[in-house]
Protein backbone atom coordinates (compact mmCIF):
# COMPACT_ATOMS: atom_id res chain seq x y z
CA UNK A 1 0.00 0.00 0.00
CA UNK A 2 1.55 3.28 -1.00
CA UNK A 3 1.43 6.18 1.38
CA UNK A 4 -1.03 8.16 -0.65
CA UNK A 5 -3.11 5.08 -1.23
CA UNK A 6 -3.59 4.50 2.46
CA UNK A 7 -5.88 7.45 2.69
CA UNK A 8 -7.19 7.24 -0.84
CA UNK A 9 -8.70 3.82 -0.79
CA UNK A 10 -11.42 2.49 1.39
CA UNK A 11 -10.12 -1.01 1.94
CA UNK A 12 -11.78 -4.05 0.45
CA UNK A 13 -14.31 -2.12 -1.60
CA UNK A 14 -16.53 -4.53 -3.47
CA UNK A 15 -15.04 -7.47 -1.56
CA UNK A 16 -12.04 -7.75 -3.88
CA UNK A 17 -8.52 -7.49 -2.55
CA UNK A 18 -5.98 -5.27 -4.23
CA UNK A 19 -2.60 -6.69 -5.15
CA UNK A 20 -1.05 -4.79 -2.26
CA UNK A 21 -3.48 -6.37 0.15
CA UNK A 22 -2.72 -9.82 -1.22
CA UNK A 23 1.01 -9.21 -0.76
CA UNK A 24 0.41 -7.96 2.78
CA UNK A 25 -1.70 -10.99 3.65
CA UNK A 26 0.95 -13.28 2.17
CA UNK A 27 3.63 -11.61 4.29
CA UNK A 28 1.57 -11.95 7.46
CA UNK A 29 0.69 -15.57 6.76
CA UNK A 30 4.28 -16.27 5.74
CA UNK A 31 5.58 -15.08 9.10
CA UNK A 32 2.97 -16.97 11.10
CA UNK A 33 3.32 -20.07 8.94
CA UNK A 34 7.09 -20.05 9.24
CA UNK A 35 6.95 -19.71 13.01
CA UNK A 36 4.32 -22.40 13.49
CA UNK A 37 5.96 -24.71 10.94
CA UNK A 38 9.29 -24.44 12.72
CA UNK A 39 7.55 -25.15 16.02
CA UNK A 40 5.80 -28.23 14.56
CA UNK A 41 9.20 -29.52 13.41
CA UNK A 42 10.71 -28.75 16.80
CA UNK A 43 13.12 -26.23 15.33
CA UNK A 44 13.26 -23.92 18.33
CA UNK A 45 16.02 -21.83 16.80
CA UNK A 46 13.86 -21.02 13.76
CA UNK A 47 10.93 -20.06 15.98
CA UNK A 48 13.27 -17.64 17.72
CA UNK A 49 14.44 -16.35 14.35
CA UNK A 50 10.83 -15.70 13.29
CA UNK A 51 10.25 -13.93 16.61
CA UNK A 52 13.29 -11.76 15.94
CA UNK A 53 11.90 -10.83 12.51
CA UNK A 54 8.56 -9.86 14.06
CA UNK A 55 10.21 -7.72 16.75
CA UNK A 56 12.48 -5.93 14.28
CA UNK A 57 9.41 -5.38 12.08
CA UNK A 58 7.71 -3.62 15.00
CA UNK A 59 10.75 -1.39 15.42
CA UNK A 60 10.76 -0.70 11.68
CA UNK A 61 7.03 0.03 11.76
CA UNK A 62 7.72 2.77 14.29
CA UNK A 63 10.31 4.29 11.98
CA UNK A 64 7.99 3.88 8.98
CA UNK A 65 5.45 6.18 10.59
CA UNK A 66 7.87 9.12 10.51
CA UNK A 67 9.95 8.14 7.48
CA UNK A 68 7.41 6.55 5.17
CA UNK A 69 4.45 8.75 5.99
CA UNK A 70 6.04 11.91 7.38
CA UNK A 71 9.18 11.93 5.22
CA UNK A 72 11.53 12.38 8.20
CA UNK A 73 14.78 10.44 7.81
CA UNK A 74 15.59 9.62 11.43
CA UNK A 75 19.02 8.07 11.77
CA UNK A 76 18.64 7.70 15.51
CA UNK A 77 15.83 5.25 16.06
CA UNK A 78 18.16 2.86 17.87
CA UNK A 79 17.81 5.33 20.74
CA UNK A 80 14.15 4.40 21.28
CA UNK A 81 14.81 0.72 20.61
CA UNK A 82 17.59 0.66 23.19
CA UNK A 83 15.69 2.74 25.72
CA UNK A 84 12.80 0.30 25.47
CA UNK A 85 15.27 -2.53 25.98
CA UNK A 86 16.81 -0.87 29.00
CA UNK A 87 13.37 -0.10 30.44
CA UNK A 88 12.67 -3.81 30.30
CA UNK A 89 16.12 -4.81 31.56
CA UNK A 90 16.22 -2.36 34.45
CA UNK A 91 12.71 -3.15 35.71
CA UNK A 92 13.44 -6.88 35.55
CA UNK A 93 16.88 -6.43 37.10
CA UNK A 94 15.44 -4.85 40.24
CA UNK A 95 12.61 -7.35 40.48
CA UNK A 96 14.94 -10.34 40.07
CA UNK A 97 17.51 -8.99 42.53
CA UNK A 98 14.96 -7.72 45.06
CA UNK A 99 16.60 -4.31 45.11
CA UNK A 100 14.58 -1.15 45.25
CA UNK A 101 14.60 0.88 42.04
CA UNK A 102 13.51 3.92 44.03
CA UNK A 103 12.21 4.43 47.55
CA UNK A 104 10.36 7.69 47.17
CA UNK A 105 7.43 8.40 47.04
CA UNK A 106 6.95 4.66 47.51
CA UNK A 107 9.25 1.68 47.48
CA UNK A 108 9.40 0.19 44.00
CA UNK A 109 11.24 -3.03 43.33
CA UNK A 110 10.79 -3.28 39.60
CA UNK A 111 8.56 -5.73 37.82
CA UNK A 112 8.64 -8.76 35.54
CA UNK A 113 5.16 -8.16 34.18
CA UNK A 114 5.29 -7.56 30.44
CA UNK A 115 2.23 -5.28 30.26
CA UNK A 116 3.73 -2.96 32.88
CA UNK A 117 7.15 -3.14 31.20
CA UNK A 118 5.65 -2.42 27.78
CA UNK A 119 3.81 0.64 29.03
CA UNK A 120 6.94 1.88 30.78
CA UNK A 121 9.06 1.30 27.68
CA UNK A 122 6.56 3.13 25.49
CA UNK A 123 6.38 6.03 27.91
CA UNK A 124 10.18 6.28 28.04
CA UNK A 125 10.40 6.05 24.25
CA UNK A 126 7.69 8.66 23.79
CA UNK A 127 9.32 11.04 26.25
CA UNK A 128 12.75 10.68 24.62
CA UNK A 129 11.17 11.21 21.18
CA UNK A 130 9.37 14.29 22.48
CA UNK A 131 12.61 15.90 23.65
CA UNK A 132 14.73 14.77 20.69
CA UNK A 133 11.94 15.53 18.20
CA UNK A 134 11.26 19.00 19.58
CA UNK A 135 14.92 19.90 19.06
CA UNK A 136 15.57 17.97 15.84
CA UNK A 137 12.46 19.14 14.02
CA UNK A 138 13.87 22.65 13.95
CA UNK A 139 16.12 21.34 11.19
CA UNK A 140 15.38 19.64 7.89
CA UNK A 141 17.13 17.45 5.36
CA UNK A 142 20.64 16.28 6.06
CA UNK A 143 20.81 18.31 9.29
CA UNK A 144 17.84 16.40 10.62
CA UNK A 145 19.58 13.11 9.81
CA UNK A 146 22.75 14.25 11.59
CA UNK A 147 21.07 15.64 14.68
CA UNK A 148 19.01 12.48 15.22
CA UNK A 149 22.21 10.47 14.81
CA UNK A 150 23.93 12.72 17.35
CA UNK A 151 21.19 12.23 19.94
CA UNK A 152 21.33 8.49 19.37
CA UNK A 153 25.08 8.47 19.95
CA UNK A 154 24.73 10.54 23.12
CA UNK A 155 22.40 7.96 24.61
CA UNK A 156 24.66 5.14 23.40
CA UNK A 157 27.71 6.57 25.18
CA UNK A 158 25.67 7.35 28.24
CA UNK A 159 24.67 3.67 28.49
CA UNK A 160 28.28 2.56 28.02
CA UNK A 161 29.56 4.81 30.77
CA UNK A 162 26.83 4.14 33.34
CA UNK A 163 28.08 1.26 35.47
CA UNK A 164 24.93 0.82 37.57
CA UNK A 165 23.26 -1.19 34.81
CA UNK A 166 26.16 -3.08 33.35
CA UNK A 167 27.79 -0.34 31.32
CA UNK A 168 29.57 -1.77 28.33
CA UNK A 169 28.87 -5.35 29.43
CA UNK A 170 25.12 -4.99 29.32
CA UNK A 171 22.49 -6.31 31.63
CA UNK A 172 21.19 -9.89 31.67
CA UNK A 173 17.55 -10.79 32.31
CA UNK A 174 17.79 -14.19 33.96
CA UNK A 175 14.19 -15.22 33.42
CA UNK A 176 12.06 -13.92 30.58
CA UNK A 177 9.41 -11.53 31.83
CA UNK A 178 5.89 -12.87 32.16
CA UNK A 179 2.56 -12.20 30.52
CA UNK A 180 -0.66 -13.09 32.36
CA UNK A 181 -1.98 -16.46 31.18
CA UNK A 182 1.02 -17.32 29.02
CA UNK A 183 4.24 -19.21 29.50
CA UNK A 184 6.56 -16.78 27.77
CA UNK A 185 9.49 -19.17 28.14
CA UNK A 186 7.79 -21.39 25.58
CA UNK A 187 9.21 -20.03 22.30
CA UNK A 188 6.01 -20.49 20.33
CA UNK A 189 3.89 -18.73 22.95
CA UNK A 190 6.29 -15.80 22.98
CA UNK A 191 6.27 -15.83 19.17
CA UNK A 192 2.48 -15.69 19.16
CA UNK A 193 2.47 -12.83 21.63
CA UNK A 194 4.99 -10.86 19.54
CA UNK A 195 2.92 -11.48 16.40
CA UNK A 196 -0.19 -10.10 18.12
CA UNK A 197 1.77 -6.98 19.09
CA UNK A 198 3.15 -6.64 15.55
CA UNK A 199 -0.24 -6.80 13.87
CA UNK A 200 -1.77 -4.54 16.49
CA UNK A 201 0.93 -1.94 15.75
CA UNK A 202 0.48 -2.28 11.98
CA UNK A 203 -3.27 -1.89 12.50
CA UNK A 204 -2.65 1.20 14.61
CA UNK A 205 -0.39 2.75 11.96
CA UNK A 206 -2.89 1.93 9.22
CA UNK A 207 -5.61 3.62 11.23
CA UNK A 208 -3.42 6.67 11.86
CA UNK A 209 -2.49 6.91 8.19
CA UNK A 210 -6.15 7.04 7.18
CA UNK A 211 -7.16 9.56 9.82
CA UNK A 212 -7.20 13.33 9.65
CA UNK A 213 -3.85 13.26 11.40
CA UNK A 214 -2.48 10.88 8.76
CA UNK A 215 -3.63 13.09 5.92
CA UNK A 216 -1.83 16.07 7.45
CA UNK A 217 1.25 13.93 8.15
CA UNK A 218 1.47 12.71 4.56
CA UNK A 219 0.92 16.24 3.31
CA UNK A 220 3.84 17.36 5.50
CA UNK A 221 6.06 14.90 3.63
CA UNK A 222 5.00 16.28 0.26
CA UNK A 223 4.70 20.01 0.76
CA UNK A 224 5.09 21.80 4.08
CA UNK A 225 4.45 25.21 2.52
CA UNK A 226 1.06 24.03 1.29
CA UNK A 227 0.20 22.54 4.66
CA UNK A 228 0.85 25.92 6.31
CA UNK A 229 -1.28 27.63 3.67
CA UNK A 230 -4.29 25.50 4.58
CA UNK A 231 -3.88 26.41 8.24
CA UNK A 232 -2.05 23.34 9.59
CA UNK A 233 1.36 23.75 11.26
CA UNK A 234 3.62 20.91 10.07
CA UNK A 235 5.78 21.07 13.20
CA UNK A 236 3.07 19.89 15.56
CA UNK A 237 1.90 17.12 13.27
CA UNK A 238 5.45 15.83 12.76
CA UNK A 239 6.26 15.99 16.47
CA UNK A 240 3.20 13.95 17.41
CA UNK A 241 4.15 11.38 14.75
CA UNK A 242 7.71 11.32 16.12
CA UNK A 243 6.46 10.66 19.66
CA UNK A 244 4.16 7.82 18.56
CA UNK A 245 7.02 6.44 16.48
CA UNK A 246 9.40 6.52 19.43
CA UNK A 247 6.87 4.69 21.61
CA UNK A 248 6.34 1.91 19.05
CA UNK A 249 10.07 1.40 18.49
CA UNK A 250 10.66 1.36 22.27
CA UNK A 251 8.01 -1.34 22.64
CA UNK A 252 9.94 -3.39 20.09
CA UNK A 253 13.08 -2.81 22.15
CA UNK A 254 11.42 -4.17 25.29
CA UNK A 255 10.39 -7.30 23.39
CA UNK A 256 13.88 -7.66 21.93
CA UNK A 257 15.40 -7.54 25.42
CA UNK A 258 13.05 -10.32 26.43
CA UNK A 259 13.86 -12.34 23.34
CA UNK A 260 17.59 -12.26 24.08
CA UNK A 261 17.15 -12.05 27.85
CA UNK A 262 19.92 -9.51 27.62
CA UNK A 263 20.24 -5.76 27.06
CA UNK A 264 23.43 -4.09 25.96
CA UNK A 265 24.51 -0.78 24.47
CA UNK A 266 24.62 -2.47 21.05
CA UNK A 267 20.84 -2.05 20.98
CA UNK A 268 21.51 1.70 21.03
CA UNK A 269 24.21 1.73 18.37
CA UNK A 270 23.87 3.56 15.09
CA UNK A 271 24.25 0.27 13.23
CA UNK A 272 20.81 -0.62 14.42
CA UNK A 273 19.41 2.75 13.30
CA UNK A 274 20.89 1.97 9.90
CA UNK A 275 19.43 -1.52 9.83
CA UNK A 276 15.96 -0.15 10.52
CA UNK A 277 16.35 2.24 7.58
CA UNK A 278 17.54 -0.66 5.42
CA UNK A 279 14.44 -2.70 6.32
CA UNK A 280 12.22 0.08 5.04
CA UNK A 281 14.20 0.67 1.86
CA UNK A 282 14.20 -3.07 1.14
CA UNK A 283 10.52 -3.46 1.92
CA UNK A 284 9.30 -0.29 0.25
CA UNK A 285 9.27 2.95 2.24
CA UNK A 286 5.81 4.18 3.14
CA UNK A 287 4.14 0.82 2.61
CA UNK A 288 2.43 -0.50 5.70
CA UNK A 289 4.06 -3.94 5.55
CA UNK A 290 7.49 -2.71 4.42
CA UNK A 291 9.13 -3.29 7.82
CA UNK A 292 7.97 -6.91 7.90
CA UNK A 293 9.08 -7.60 4.32
CA UNK A 294 12.41 -5.83 4.89
CA UNK A 295 13.19 -7.37 8.28
CA UNK A 296 12.23 -10.82 7.02
CA UNK A 297 14.42 -10.54 3.96
CA UNK A 298 17.32 -9.11 5.95
CA UNK A 299 17.26 -11.80 8.64
CA UNK A 300 16.78 -14.55 6.05
CA UNK A 301 19.79 -13.35 4.08
CA UNK A 302 21.87 -12.89 7.19
CA UNK A 303 21.04 -16.46 8.16
CA UNK A 304 21.47 -18.05 4.72
CA UNK A 305 24.37 -16.02 3.30
CA UNK A 306 26.00 -15.80 6.71
CA UNK A 307 26.31 -19.57 6.64
CA UNK A 308 28.06 -19.49 3.27
CA UNK A 309 30.40 -16.56 3.70
CA UNK A 310 31.61 -14.33 6.50
CA UNK A 311 31.39 -11.49 4.05
CA UNK A 312 27.67 -11.86 3.49
CA UNK A 313 27.18 -8.14 3.94
CA UNK A 314 29.07 -7.57 0.71
CA UNK A 315 26.45 -9.53 -1.19
CA UNK A 316 23.74 -7.90 0.82
CA UNK A 317 25.17 -4.53 -0.21
CA UNK A 318 24.86 -5.53 -3.85
CA UNK A 319 21.22 -6.43 -3.29
CA UNK A 320 20.54 -3.13 -1.58
CA UNK A 321 22.22 -1.31 -4.45
CA UNK A 322 19.98 -3.18 -6.86
CA UNK A 323 16.86 -2.20 -4.94
CA UNK A 324 17.82 1.44 -4.74
CA UNK A 325 18.76 1.61 -8.43
CA UNK A 326 16.10 -0.57 -10.02
CA UNK A 327 13.24 -1.17 -7.60
CA UNK A 328 12.61 2.01 -5.68
CA UNK A 329 9.35 0.66 -4.31
CA UNK A 330 11.25 -2.16 -2.58
CA UNK A 331 9.99 -5.71 -2.35
CA UNK A 332 6.37 -4.67 -1.91
CA UNK A 333 6.56 -2.18 -4.75
CA UNK A 334 8.00 -4.94 -6.92
CA UNK A 335 5.31 -7.47 -6.02
CA UNK A 336 2.31 -5.20 -5.68
CA UNK A 337 3.08 -2.80 -8.49
CA UNK A 338 3.78 0.92 -8.28
CA UNK A 339 1.75 3.46 -6.46
CA UNK A 340 -1.90 3.16 -7.25
CA UNK A 341 -4.28 5.93 -6.60
CA UNK A 342 -7.94 5.41 -6.10
Amino acid sequence: MSAAEVTAMPEGRGGRMTRAQIVNAALALGLIGFGLGAWAMDETFLVTLATKVAILAIAGAGLNLVLGFGGLVSFGHAAYFGLGGYASGILAHHALNYTAMFEWPFVFEGTTSMPVIWLTAMAVGALAALVIGALSLRTTGVYFIMITLAFGQMIFYFAISWPAYGGEDGLPIYVRNGFPGLNTLDPVQFFGLVCVVLFAMLGLISMLARSRFGLALQAARQNRQRLMAVGIRPGGVLLVAFVISGAITALAGALYADLNRFVSPSMLSWHLSGELLVFLILGGTGRLFAPLAGAGLYIALEHLLGGVSDHWQFFFGLLLLGVVLFARGGVIGFLAGGKRHG
Binding site: T7, P10, R210, R212, L215, Q222, V230, I232, H341
Partner: peptide
Protein backbone atom coordinates in the same frame (compact mmCIF):
# COMPACT_ATOMS: atom_id res chain seq x y z
CA UNK B 1 -0.20 21.23 -3.93
CA UNK B 2 0.49 17.80 -2.45
CA UNK B 3 1.55 16.00 -5.66
CA UNK B 4 0.96 12.42 -4.51
CA UNK B 5 -2.52 13.15 -3.22
CA UNK B 6 -5.51 13.01 -5.49
CA UNK B 7 -7.49 16.13 -6.29
CA UNK B 8 -10.05 15.05 -3.71
CA UNK B 9 -7.44 14.44 -1.00
CA UNK B 10 -5.88 17.85 -1.60
CA UNK B 11 -9.20 19.63 -1.22
CA UNK B 12 -10.19 17.51 1.79
CA UNK B 13 -6.86 18.50 3.36
CA UNK B 14 -7.80 22.12 2.87
CA UNK B 15 -11.29 21.63 4.33
CA UNK B 16 -9.67 19.84 7.26
CA UNK B 17 -7.33 22.78 7.79
CA UNK B 18 -10.28 25.16 7.86
CA UNK B 19 -12.03 22.95 10.41
CA UNK B 20 -9.05 23.42 12.71
CA UNK B 21 -9.14 19.77 13.80
CA UNK B 22 -6.17 17.83 12.48
CA UNK B 23 -5.30 15.92 15.65
CA UNK B 24 -7.94 13.25 15.21
CA UNK B 25 -6.49 9.80 15.01
CA UNK B 26 -9.29 7.29 14.66
CA UNK B 27 -11.89 7.79 11.97
CA UNK B 28 -10.88 7.63 8.31
CA UNK B 29 -10.73 11.14 6.92
CA UNK B 30 -11.80 10.06 3.45
Amino acid sequence: VAPEFTVLQNVVLSAQGASGASFRFFRPVM
